[in-house]
């Protein structure tokens, strides 16, 4: 379907989240869903972000606190494991870093332009005083 602009929809149009029929939404993962162009899943708010979370899986204990407390459904968790951050939908609020219980934290905020691999290589060491 060709992408419609905001002034090309009919007045009072009903927006459908999915293309075609979907029976069991609660049992279908986001990557398996046929989102239509009207779902905000297809949009991006990445340009809101000034700082971004970087995920270091070496220290992650898969407690899923970041998953439940993420306001933007941006923490991607599959089979009880945290696999990454959805950078299209993350607004960079930093809640995930605040609720992360590990020492050192497995999620940290860096400036948007920072290089992820360099930051992971220079990850802070365990903070003895805090523990």
């Amino acid at each position: 379907m060709a992408k419609k602009g905001w002034d090309e929809f009919e007045i009072g149009a009903m927006l459908r989240t999915f293309d075609g029929k979907i029976d069991d939404i609660a049992g279908t993962r986001q990557e398996d869903r046929a989102y239509s162009q009207n779902s905000s899943y297809t949009a991006s708010v990445a340009d809101w972000r000034l700082i971004k979370p970087v995920f270091n899986k070496d220290y992650c204990i898969d407690c899923q606190f970041c998953w439940i407390y993420c306001p933007d459904v941006s923490i991607v968790s599959r089979d009880k494991k945290l696999i990454g951050v959805d950078m299209d939908h993350c607004k960079g609020c930093g809640i995930c870093v605040e609720v992360c219980p590990t020492n050192p934290k497995s999620l940290l905020m860096f400036p948007e332009q920072a290089d992820e691999e360099t930051e992971i290589a220079n990850w802070p060491k365990k903070d003895e005083e805090e523990a």
């Binding site: 905000s40 899943y41 297809t42 306001p71 933007d72 941006s74 299209d88 607004k91 609020c93 930093g94």
Partner: peptide, 9 residues
């Protein structure tokens, strides 16, 4: 879904 326009946080 994400990419709603609620404030960060």
């Amino acid at each position: 879904e994400g990419a709603n326009l609620l404030c960060p946080g």
